[in-house]
Design a protein around this nucleic acid. Structure first.
Lengths: 132, 132
DNA sequence: TAAAAAGTGTTATAATATAACATATCAAAT
DNA sequence: ATTTGATATGTTATATTATAACACTTTTTA
């Protein structure tokens, strides 16, 4: 079955629903706490759901924060590269949708004799709302 | 006292020496294990040394690996932005020294109404040695 | 040289994540 | 329809990463 058409299991859907409702990235144990009423009882259930969701590109991990966010792009199948804008004031995170980043990084890498495969970019600063 | 002239304490120097000798990034508990003969006995001693070394720019953290690497640049005082090339084959990490990355990211961020402050970039791929 | 700032040593514990194993579900190929 | 193989589940335990709290010491600076 194609990844994009993948049917989610109960636990996976529960975790994804929560992340999609959330304004900010959530930590695994926050997800656990918030999904107890839906029957998720142990950390592993959360991590396994997250693993799958990340694999199919529905969720991304923000490495520097140990937190997880639903992908903003509809029908995103990519779990490879991620680029985030992280507001240091309000902690909100948005994705930088820059189609040419991979090729830019590939070029930069090449100059260091390095073969680019994928990347994780975390940009910190101040978001639109917080500059007002 | 200027950061660049900062004198390191014993623990800080011990941790930095180890990282500078290492070919790969090291994890905190690996550092702890390897510095026991130098008198470092507890995780907190390692983390405190790392915190300081990161603050003065001598060490960087690789977020997606929970590991630490000595800065390759002599007299680097910057703890703000980091850019790494991480080899998925041999786990060696080098720094991408691209002076114009910050301004490039600032420009990209601006298009999303986001005020760039600093960044963390982790590029995965295959290093020169491993492509042979 | 006193006060302030930074670092140390230590114990305990918090936060994040995975191992191991038995069982269950489900798609698809006989 | 039924076996099969892949994937998911539930559960307990534990590994890994990181910080809190507190008493004390050293270094810096005014």
């Amino acid at each position: 079955m194609a990844l994009s058409a993948e049917k989610l299991t109960n636990n996976q859907q529960t975790v994804l629903d929560l992340l999609e409702k959330s304004k900010e990235p959530l930590k695994a144990y926050a997800i656990l706490y918030d999904t107890q009423k839906k029957g998720i009882k142990a950390p592993l259930q959360v991590y396994r759901a997250l693993d799958k969701l990340i694999e199919i590109g529905k969720v991304h991990k923000i490495e520097s924060r140990n937190s997880y966010i639903a992908c903003e792009h509809k029908n995103c199948n990519s779990s490879t590269s991620t680029s985030f804008l992280i507001c240091e004031t309000c902690d909100q995170v948005s994705e930088l949708t820059q189609k040419n980043l991979p090729s830019y990084f590939a070029k930069q890498s090449e100059q260091a004799d390095f073969k680019y495969a994928k990347h994780n970019l975390e940009i910190y600063g101040v978001c639109k709302d917080c500059t007002k």
